[in-house]
């Protein structure tokens, strides 16, 4: 065991391996950032639609609620496979990374929409009435009063969700996206000891996820103190 590790060390600890893992790491990050970023915006749109009261938006409210409820009940792996094959009809040239990013977006939209909704609902109804009687429009009261006050409640769980999703993107390896998890498997298939291949990948995930997780926790304690900033 030790002999094998010693023998493989010179071939494993090379610039090529580092570059290969670095590229894979950047793909993992890219999928998470694009998917969760787009998912956050779309999730916010869905949350706002669900809060709306206008009669003509009733069908949109039902669809938004159904989307949020249903997409949190389908495994990410199944979403990935469905997106991979569905997207073929629209954008056969889209890269696998792009396909994975769309799948992340679809899943993240559902989860982040719930987080945003909880944040918007945490703002007391009295604040809305305060804006209302001053003659602010619904849009003005949303952007100027409700949203600024809900960040405090939205940001910590949203950040925690994104950190969690870094790990879920490992499933994109099934599509053939050479992200971190797949890169580990490729290294092992190339003949390296699993201790090297998977060990390196586990360490990289940890180095990515742990500090970001701590940051999300710090954000939570910091934002909990003050209500106005």
């Amino acid at each position: 065991m030790i002999d094998r590790l010693m023998a493989e060390a010179p071939a494993f600890f090379t610039r090529d391996t580092a570059a290969f893992l670095g590229l894979a790491l950047s793909r993992t990050l890219l999928m998470t950032v694009i998917g969760c970023g787009a998912g956050f915006v779309l999730g916010m749109v869905l949350a706002v639609v669900r809060r709306s009261r206008a009669g003509w938006l009733a069908p949109a409210r039902v669809l938004a609620a159904a989307y949020v409820e249903l997409f949190r009940r389908i495994p990410f792996l199944v979403i990935l496979i469905l997106v991979l094959f569905s997207v073929q009809a629209f954008a056969p040239d889209l890269s696998l990374l792009g396909i994975a990013a769309i799948a992340v977006t679809l899943a993240a939209t559902a989860y982040l929409s719930e987080i945003v909704r909880a944040g918007l609902e945490s703002v007391p109804r009295a604040q809305v009435e305060g804006a209302d009687v001053l003659g602010l429009s619904a849009a003005q009261s949303f952007w100027l009063v409700i949203l600024p006050q809900s960040w405090r409640v939205i940001l910590p769980p949203a950040a925690a969700f994104m950190v969690m999703f870094i790990k879920d993107t490992a499933l994109a390896s099934h599509l053939g996206v050479v992200e971190l998890a797949f890169s580990g498997k490729i290294l092992v298939n190339r003949g390296f000891s699993p201790l090297y291949g998977f060990g390196a990948v586990l360490i990289l995930y940890f180095l990515l996820s742990w500090p970001l997780g701590r940051m999300a926790a710090w954000l939570e304690t910091r934002l909990a103190v003050s209500r106005h900033r």
Binding site: K167, S173, V188, L202, G213
Partner: peptide, 21 residues
């Protein structure tokens, strides 16, 4: 810390592909 900061998929990779060694 370890199990919440690494993907379950890679954890199973290790159990399935590395433990036999």
């Amino acid at each position: 810390s370890f199990f919440t900061n690494t993907p379950a998929l890679v954890q199973i990779f290790v159990l399935y592909y590395a433990l036999p060694d």
